[in-house]
Design a binder for these strands. Sequence first.
DNA 1: GTCTATAGGGGGATAGAC
DNA 2: GTCTATCCCCCTATAGAC
Lengths: 179, 179
Amino acid sequence: MNLAEELLQDRGFNGFSYADIAGQLGVKNAAIHYHFPSKEELGIAVIKRYRERFKLWVNNSRIKDLSYPEKLDWFFNIYSDFRVNNGKVCLVGALEVEFNSIPEGLRKEVEYLNRETLVWLEAILAEGREAGAFQFKGTPASKAAVIYSSVQGALQMARALGTKKFCEVVEQNKQDVLV
Amino acid sequence: MNLAEELLQDRGFNGFSYADIAGQLGVKNAAIHYHFPSKEELGIAVIKRYRERFKLWVNNSRIKDLSYPEKLDWFFNIYSDFRVNNGKVCLVGALEVEFNSIPEGLRKEVEYLNRETLVWLEAILAEGREAGAFQFKGTPASKAAVIYSSVQGALQMARALGTKKFCEVVEQNKQDVLV
DNA sequence: GTCTATAGGGGGATAGAC
DNA sequence: GTCTATCCCCCTATAGAC
């Protein structure tokens, strides 16, 4: 599942194969099929695990007790780590590009992960503005959508234009909301 | 080339085949290979044409003579049309997700298109702010990167969350720069 | 320019031995 | 749980007839 997650973020769902995983593990193709009968099930397992991880993180006191700007920083750092770690993109963006050619079950998981991330981001933007830590026009929901979509887009853009471009987007997003 | 462009925006470079194009044209696989010997050449031709089209547009007086807010609107409308027209995503985003598994020549074209779009957007943001039509913190370059990456991300997000989410991102982006 | 035919590779998935 | 072997499908690309 670790390898599947990395490959997914590196090449997309249709861009990696059972053989890629088996090869790196030093086992054969069929061994993976024993644990994940279909590729759809493998993909679903990876996203479910990711969703669970995100839920654990945001409910962890280490993150819950941060200030609002620090929470935003923590959020951006998830994606900075993706970028620094082999130029990965966000699972959500990768699967949405392939949305029309992936199994139905996978589409549902992508939708859930996307929604859950936006809900969290919207909440901290709303609370942070209420508390005077952030300032922005529009609703917390639409501001969350801009931030999340731009970070996803920026991870992709960085593949063509370099890491600096990604950092530019993060910094601009911060300036746009910090008081 | 029209079909290739649509398929590219629908399923990505690795998500469509010569057979898809041939089938819709009512010809055979090999006929396409006569005009575009390799898939890489087909992809390059599509992006080169797209770049040319963009260049013609922005140098056309119908767009050159618009006000700054109208120019920004025109820009957003390119992508709104993508969304409305069968939920397409931006060529650039689609190919960047697959960046690590597409031919080198295609990567170069994606880079050029990306740069050219950002250069134009940066210029109208800079001039528009100078002229008092826009207001934003940070540099025109980083603001352009946020807008462009968020629109790309929003086209993808809309596949999972619907067109409304895309419109939200566009509106929020406008609010963030219009005085 | 388009056709038929085919080469040659890779993919997901399964059966059955161990 | 993993292996070998294999099925069947789709892909890009080419050769040669028309």
